[in-house]
C-alpha cells in the first residue's frame, strides 16, 4: 500500500506540463473580459427591469410636463407683452401718457 503511494508521489513529482506558447492568449483573455462586461450591463438591466421601467416612466413624464410648462410660460409672457404693445398703439390714454 505504502509502496504504491510512494510510486505515485514520485511520478507526480517528476510530472511536468509544457503547454505550447500561445501568442494570442492575452488578447483572447481581454476580449472575453470585454464581452463579459457588455453582457453584464444587459444582465444588470434585465435584473432591474421593473425599477428602471418605473424610473423611466417617472423621469420621462416629468421631463415632458416640464418642457410643456416652460413653453407655455414663455408663450403666455410673450402674449402679455404683445397685448400691452397692441393696446399702447390703440389706446389714446396710453398715447397721452407717452407724449407727456
Amino acid at each position: 500500500m505504502n509502496t504504491s503511494r510512494d510510486k505515485l508521489s514520485e511520478i507526480l513529482q517528476d510530472w511536468r506540463v509544457k503547454p505550447p506558447s500561445d501568442p494570442g492568449f492575452r488578447a483572447a483573455v481581454w476580449r472575453r473580459i470585454g464581452q463579459q462586461g457588455e453582457a453584464t450591463w444587459s444582465a444588470y438591466l434585465r435584473a432591474h427591469t421593473a425599477a428602471w421601467a418605473v424610473a423611466a416612466v417617472l423621469t420621462f413624464s416629468v421631463a415632458g410636463v416640464a418642457g410643456r410648462a416652460l413653453a407655455q410660460a414663455r408663450v403666455e409672457a410673450d402674449r402679455e407683452t404683445m397685448v400691452v404693445s397692441y393696446l399702447v398703439e390703440l389706446d389714446p390714454r396710453a398715447q397721452a401718457i407717452l407724449k407727456q
Partner: peptide, 8 residues
C-alpha cells in the same frame, strides 16, 4: 423635454 417644449 426638448421635444415637448418645441411642440408647445
Amino acid at each position: 423635454g426638448f421635444m415637448c417644449y418645441h411642440l408647445n
